[in-house]
Design a protein around this nucleic acid. Structure first.
Lengths: 305, 305
DNA sequence: ATAATCGATGAATATTATGCATGCAAATGC
DNA sequence: GCATTTGCATGCATAATATTCATCGATTAT
């Protein structure tokens, strides 16, 4: 009855990764023969082939591709479980896996993590940025324990809490024609080169909340992965960008950049921390959220608000 | 290195379900001794106990409770994988697992399923109503393949599509004082007994979109599981309820009930079908969505809209 | 062409899981 | 209060299974 075992999933995944049974056998510390026998048996029990034997190479069948998907979904869950349990055994509290759905939040997160690590010496922190199904999916799939996002989702099973308010502003070179303005209107960006992180336009506030509602497009749209390089591009006059005000102010000391309000009202944003409802009573998880909120109030005080 | 196996998860789950190793051994077709040996070995490898031995009964430790969670999450995935693969082997297309997040949608779904089953004879349909993490979570966790919900969520990894428009109306007995009204105002319900399905008030449109915004509460709030009984209660004058107009009209032939518009504008609703983005190109899944949309247009034509 | 590489396979073997018998401790019943 | 039942643990024997070794045929590369 029960025939699909962990080893089968491991073999399928490893064969796909390494390209051959022989190579996979190597990383799994088994012989090619062992894998061959195991999979043959599984194929017989399932009644369907997993690979098409083409010459001396293997190509996944439809069933095989399906199993590969299962493997890539399930194996990490098992691996994580083992790690967690061994942490329990070692008396450690575990690892808080934080997912980031918001590029510039990284800088903010670092400021929360530092005091947290000091306060909770037996809790490790891991930060992930890429998810198969986006941040929410990663929470549901137990890939992460905490999600940092500007885009919360109030759904049964999940818990979101605002921890940080900030203003999204335009960043321009100090000698840019817009540098002194009180604020900019969408139309004023139609002649600009806009530099953003490489994510879909619909997910960028400058588009979603500013340009698109006004029916305006920038002259050009470039994307850059890292904040540092992005700001250096802005500083060197190659374009403008949109970032949190506090982040711009932090870099303003070292780079020739200035923030400008977007629209008369400005764009107000919030960062949320999301967790699984069932885990909101875990002490070290609560503590992280508390830590994050606390940093925010300090921040707000500094800005004189 | 790899020590946590499927059997261990099965044992933990079954012991929790049946209450003892002996009973679990029975359902797993093994002896009590086998389970004891297996788990003992795992405990040694992990370095932590899974059960506290209290007298002659087992109580899960923290690690054990964690593993139970893993088991309840992972085992269904493996079981499903086996089933799917055996369906592949048998030449079947598979099972379309549909999740419902909306009580009265069931009647509507039945009308879609009937022609669909005829058009796709080798695809089975299964309908589920209860999910650990709500409908969205069930999609992410591969518990279901399609979600019927009035509450879509546009997120990376998921795809939602509107398939059905309808109006949410008040249902009252034919001789009720509101029966002839063009529409009702929230205040008019403050003296009524409101009967709904047993879900949280925030998820009921009559509260969320009608009563709460007006700051009104009904005289009493009763809950009933099934549509038939609910409507019989309404017909017998025991209270009023809120349901889709088309559903009320369907029952109007057999029961003394009439629909009344909620507010001057009425409450417009939509039903969405949600699926995992990665699966939206599966033919039999697409076909279901198409079927659903088609039924809608027929419906709309009937209503003379 | 020849060597090298890959997967399949049968038989031998090593490993592991399972069952049996039994012991001990804790509930249950009379 | 004592016998009986029930549940888990454990040592040992054994059955079941996974793994290896040796080898083959086929394909690919040089």
């Amino acid at each position: 009855m029960q025939m699909l075992e962990r080893i089968h999933l491991s073999i399928i995944r490893e064969v796909e990764k390494r390209g051959s049974l022989t190579a996979a056998a190597d990383t799994l510390c088994l012989t090619q023969s062992a894998l061959s026998h195991s999979m043959k048996k599984l194929e017989q029990q399932l009644g369907t082939d997993i690979w098409l034997r083409e010459g001396r190479s293997l190509r996944l069948t439809q069933a095989g591709r399906y199993l590969l998907g299962v493997a890539e979904r399930v194996l990490p869950q098992l691996k994580l479980a083992e790690e967690r349990l061994q942490q329990f055994a070692a008396g450690e509290r575990g690892t808080l896996r934080i997912g980031m759905e918001c590029h510039p939040c990284y800088q903010w997160l670092l400021r929360v993590v530092a005091p947290y690590l000091a306060a909770w010496p037996d809790v490790d922190v891991d930060v992930k940025q890429k998810f198969q199904f986006g941040g929410i999916g990663a929470l549901f799939a137990y890939e992460i324990d905490l999600l940092v996002t500007p885009d919360p989702l109030f759904k049964p099973g999940l818990h979101f809490e605002p921890v940080f308010d900030y203003e999204q502003v335009l960043v321009v070179n100090r000698s840019h024609r817009l540098a002194g303005a009180d604020f900019v209107e969408p139309e004023q960006l139609s002649a600009e080169v806009l530099i953003t992180y490489p994510v879909a336009s619909e997910r960028l506030d400058i588009f979603k909340l500013f340009l698109i509602p006004a029916g305006v497009a920038p002259r050009r749209h470039k994307t850059i992965e890292t904040t540092d390089i992005l700001l250096q591009m802005v500083a060197s006059g190659r374009g403008v960008s949109a970032l949190p005000r506090w982040l711009v102010e932090e870099y303003a000391g070292q780079l020739d950049i200035v923030p400008v309000r977007l629209g008369a009202q400005g764009i107000a944003k919030q960062i949320f921390l999301g967790a699984r409802q069932s885990e909101t009573d875990i002490d070290y998880l609560r503590a992280f959220i508390a830590q994050a909120r606390q940093l925010n109030s300090v921040h707000a005080a500094e800005s004189g608000r």
